[in-house]
Simulated assay, not measured.
Amino acid sequence: MSDDDRTRWDAKYADRDLPWPDALGPAAVFTAFRHEFPTAGHAVDVACGQGTAAVWLARRGLQVRGFDVSPIAIEQARALAAGSGVGDRCRFEVVDLDGGLPDGPPADVIYCARFRDRRLDAPMLERLTPGGLLAVTALSQVGSVAGRFRAAPGELREAFAGLEVIAAGEGQGLAWLLARRRIDGAG
């Protein structure tokens, strides 16, 4: 990501207040599936922003690593985790994901909201444990316009075809997928 992109994201987060505790949780499309998210293990939040999903996962009992290109967002995520009593279960890092997904242990949850970089598909799958949960949302061409960072129709299902789909959808400019890696390690 260029310095211009980092500056743009920093400006976006600098204009935001720290989220309220009731804003914690997964993307709205996953609300009905909260019970699918585990209460122990390790999680990775890709492009975590202010950390609302990461902190929610930590409050469920997971150890969470969150990555974002914006140092301002990362500081806000750290403050949110500390203020929510889970600072010891969250590790947030400034990472330019153009360089790939940072190395780390296998993850029981990989969460990625409103960010799409096809180069991360294989590394996310490789990091996911057998039985692990993948939760992804991305801007979509379905119900919107085409664009470099928008998923094409069916793209998420195709990219993660080896996983067992729990729920998925596309429309109104958003694509989303909730899927589990088979226990036998396939997919």
Score class of each variant (00 low, 15 high):
Phe115Ser: 13
Ala28Lys: 13
Asp117Glu: 09
Ala32Val: 11
Asp96Cys: 11
Arg59Phe: 01
Leu133Ile: 15
Asp96Lys: 06
His42Met: 05
Asp15Tyr: 07
Arg127Ser: 14
Asp45Met: 07
Phe30Gly: 09
Ala28Phe: 14
Asp88Val: 10
Leu97Asp: 05
Gln141Cys: 13
Arg60Thr: 07
Val142Leu: 01
Gly143Met: 02
Ala152Pro: 08
Ala54Asp: 13
Asp103Leu: 03
Asp17Cys: 13
Tyr13Gln: 03
Leu101Ala: 02
Ala40Gly: 10
Val29Trp: 07
Arg60Pro: 09
Val44His: 01
Glu126Leu: 10
Ala81Thr: 03
Phe115Met: 05
Asp10Lys: 04
Ala11Gly: 14
Leu125Thr: 10
Ala53Ile: 02
Asp15Lys: 10
Thr52Pro: 01
Cys48Pro: 01
Gly66Gln: 00
Leu80Ser: 07
Leu139Lys: 15
Gln76Tyr: 00
Ala28Arg: 15
Arg148Glu: 14
Leu62Gln: 06
Ala138Pro: 08
Ala146Arg: 13
Asp103Glu: 15
Arg8Trp: 08
Ile110Trp: 03
Val44Trp: 02
Thr31Asn: 01
Val109Lys: 12
Ile72Glu: 04
Asp117Met: 09
Arg118Lys: 03
Asp15Ser: 15
Leu101Tyr: 05
Arg91Ala: 15
Val64Ser: 02
Pro130Met: 03
Met124Lys: 08
Gly87Phe: 09
Ser140Ile: 05
Asp103Pro: 01
Val69Asn: 04
Gly61Val: 09
Ala79Cys: 10
Gly143Ala: 08
Cys90Glu: 10
Gly87Trp: 11
Thr31Cys: 08
Thr129Lys: 14
Ala54Leu: 05
Asp22Gly: 01
Ala28Val: 13
Leu120Tyr: 07
Ala23Ile: 00
Gly143Asn: 00
Gly143Ser: 12
Pro71Met: 03
Gln76Trp: 04
Arg148Ser: 14
Ala146Val: 11
Val29Gln: 11
Gly100Val: 11
Val29Met: 10
Pro123Lys: 02
Asp15His: 15
Ser144Arg: 09
Cys112Met: 13
Val136Gln: 12
Ala138Glu: 13
Pro105Cys: 04
Gly104Leu: 11
Ala122Cys: 02
Arg91Gly: 04
Ala73Arg: 00
Ala107Asp: 03
Ile74Ser: 00
Gly25Thr: 05
Ala135Asn: 06
Leu101Met: 04
Ala82Cys: 06
Asp88Leu: 10
Gly51Asp: 02
Arg127Met: 12
Gln63Ile: 14
Asp68Thr: 05
Leu101Arg: 06
Arg114Leu: 09
Pro102Ile: 13
Phe33Pro: 01
Tyr13Trp: 15
